[in-house]
Write a protein that binds this DNA or RNA. Sequence first.
DNA 1: TATGAATGAGATTTCATTCAT
DNA 2: AATGAATGAAATCTCATTCAT
Lengths: 183, 183, 183, 183
Amino acid sequence: MSPRADAARNRARVLEAAQEVFAAEGLGASTEQIARRAGVGVGTVFRHFPTKEALLSAVLAARLETLADEAERLAADGDPGTALFDFLARTVEASGPKVAYADALERAGIGTDQVVAPVRGRVTKAVGVLLERAQQAGAVRDDVAVAQVFVFIHGASRAVPTIADDGVRAATLRMMFDGLRPR
Amino acid sequence: MSPRADAARNRARVLEAAQEVFAAEGLGASTEQIARRAGVGVGTVFRHFPTKEALLSAVLAARLETLADEAERLAADGDPGTALFDFLARTVEASGPKVAYADALERAGIGTDQVVAPVRGRVTKAVGVLLERAQQAGAVRDDVAVAQVFVFIHGASRAVPTIADDGVRAATLRMMFDGLRPR
Amino acid sequence: MSPRADAARNRARVLEAAQEVFAAEGLGASTEQIARRAGVGVGTVFRHFPTKEALLSAVLAARLETLADEAERLAADGDPGTALFDFLARTVEASGPKVAYADALERAGIGTDQVVAPVRGRVTKAVGVLLERAQQAGAVRDDVAVAQVFVFIHGASRAVPTIADDGVRAATLRMMFDGLRPR
Amino acid sequence: MSPRADAARNRARVLEAAQEVFAAEGLGASTEQIARRAGVGVGTVFRHFPTKEALLSAVLAARLETLADEAERLAADGDPGTALFDFLARTVEASGPKVAYADALERAGIGTDQVVAPVRGRVTKAVGVLLERAQQAGAVRDDVAVAQVFVFIHGASRAVPTIADDGVRAATLRMMFDGLRPR
DNA sequence: TATGAATGAGATTTCATTCAT
DNA sequence: AATGAATGAAATCTCATTCAT
């Protein structure tokens, strides 16, 4: 294994550890904790991500990457009338109650972040496709913009995962996104 | 002015400062900052609120108090068909993008907090009345429970205030709560 | 009751409270605690004892006062051969394991304290009498000086009260002071 | 020099500094002061000793370690009739007037401290040997138990070092321990 | 490149002391 | 004279970041 491969592996491990730790402990978790979880020294964390901000950005970018993948897959495969709602449901259900995709989207929306920006473009585009198709299929109101869909994701992935009961959670999620449907 | 009155005034100033600072900087803001904003020494903050947790609880309780007042007022005065939605709109609009009522509700839901618990009862009751009336008036789906209304508030007050444009923000808010209306 | 009498009463209550609190919690106990125990405000404590040091001195002086009383009484009444040892036993037994007369003596020895100095003179004198008589009665070695008796009190009242068992404690105390007897 | 060795050296420096500072200023000395004396940052002190309690425990354990070494050496080498008294004299003379071995023993006796407990066993055992030998040699009363020897050490190391004059100090120490001799 | 010890700024909290009432 | 709220310096402890090995 080349040294490069080793380094790349470490980077990935840190990123994964950071996701887990942030999800479990909130964004205030310490770098040491992340390093321990990744099985590396703190120095290694800082070698790959020069500041905590950078690490956070990378985590968020990774999350957005997943979102983009999901959205692109559904844009390719899915039934136009349901694909957007499938995407929304999956996205929110995949969020933990502590650190949700909400944070990813929130920061992505605010930050002029070099790392996050490009991925953000991808997600926006893919979700845009899902939205347009849903509107053409008459499943979503015509006056909804992509930005608003993100606001829905943000809100829902913050609030809905706090509901413990599976049935109630699913019903609430559906209700919240019903606001997007034509009346 | 008796010393008691002065102390009460100081307590109120600290509380107000805390709300402002938390809103501006997030929940991680330092006690010193709050003291400075309130124009008092750190010691005074700690005299009134013996831990940072206690201060946070007090801030949240104060917010819930406002919510309860609003809900009770609308339960007394308002048009059954619109009062709940008026309440939701006001509540969310009064939330800043950083620290929303969301946090108040989130913590109130989770924490076994002696300070927050009683107020929580009041809000739940008053919103329950608004909800019931709205359902009787046919403005809200019959299968909606109070807890779900709070989830909507939580989500919306986190996400919606991130929208800068007044018109878009209002429209998005309306859409999100449209999910509660019968189809 | 004249205001003077009131003030004097408060002074006495503070002093007593201070003794109790220092004994229970150690010398680090806070002024607030003492005030609470005395049933007065902190301000009153500071009116009577302008610094914590001053309060401490007063407590120590009061203790030394008690010692002096005891020593003088025994010098008047007691059997020359046993009076000194009676005095030592009482003094040490009256010490708690936390804050012993040891501290009083230690500080009295070191401090150039205006409050403590005069009482110190009284104790020294009275114990000196007890010592001299004991020596004349052949109960104590001739080469013992008063200062050394105080060292014995200091050490014993620090260490001996840590023994829980009454019998063992008494025996140990006796042994320690046996060092003062002629061989 | 490996980083481990350096770290160990720093740990030792901190421990040594703590001993000096505690001896000079009393147990209330601040962590900053200790750090300064050790020539390291505060963070380093806390890295090695996560609480002030832990640092204190370590200091006490180190002192007991020294005591144990001394006692074991004398148990191996010394003249049965004098070894115990040599040990006592050295121990007390090595104590400063501010923080004596007294504190170590006091705390060791009281605390259920994981750090101090094991060393305590060693000292007790070694002093037990010295005591038994002294008793067999007729130099110490038969009814003295090890616990009582520690009470003597405690008392003497608190009180005796307050005597400035070398001759008087030695004489007083001898007298105090003479209580242990048969009459 | 990786490690983890060291750093020190900053956060929370306590407490002797002051001072307006 | 008494009260207790206010003050702020100082103490303990945390953590992002640096750097010697």
